[in-house]
């Protein structure tokens, strides 16, 4: 028995048991390792992906629940870092150890899609589920603002 889903536009028939956490299907079966394991409990946000455009914690999402759905991971962003969000991340040199950044980027991407001009409070609201142990919060906030400004110009 397989579960059919779409990951970054690709149709996947996942062989893992339906009660497998989506995170491990993405990482170990599909082989997309940009999405990270941080806590396994929905507390840190390192595993954030989009399901039908909505940011979710993939470690708390069962494979069965994404049957027929569209999943986007950090690998859905251009590998050449050409999106406004990634360019802003680079301009502010956001990452330190970098481990949480895939999750940060996916949370930020969802925020900007819904809200092209987020206030500080709205950024806090969208991003406070993502822990950065290196404390890059100030740069993340600045990069989101830079990306938002650029997207509004476009």
């Amino acid at each position: 028995m397989t579960t059919r889903l779409t990951v970054n536009g690709r149709t996947i028939d996942a062989k893992a048991e339906p009660d497998t956490s989506l995170l491990w299907v993405i990482r170990d079966e599909i082989g997309l390792t940009g999405t990270k394991f941080g806590c396994g409990a929905g507390l840190c946000g390192a595993c954030t992906v989009h399901v039908d455009g909505v940011p979710v914690r993939s470690c708390q999402t069962l494979l069965s629940s994404v049957s027929g759905k569209q999943v986007s991971t950090v690998e859905s962003l251009p590998v050449a870092n050409t999106s406004a969000l990634q360019r802003a991340w680079i301009a502010h040199d956001v990452p330190q150890c970098g481990y949480c950044q895939s999750g940060q980027l996916m949370s930020a991407a969802a925020l900007l899609k819904a809200n092209p001009n987020p206030s500080d409070a709205e950024i806090d609201g969208a991003m406070s589920g993502n822990i950065c142990r290196c404390g890059t919060y100030g740069r993340i906030r600045a990069a989101i603002k830079t990306a938002a400004a650029e997207l509004r110009k476009a």
Binding site: V79, Q86, G98, S102
Partner: peptide, 10 residues
């Protein structure tokens, strides 16, 4: 190392 840490490839 920023580019690789911004597209999930690091």
């Amino acid at each position: 190392d920023t580019p690789a840490k911004t597209n999930g490839t690091a």
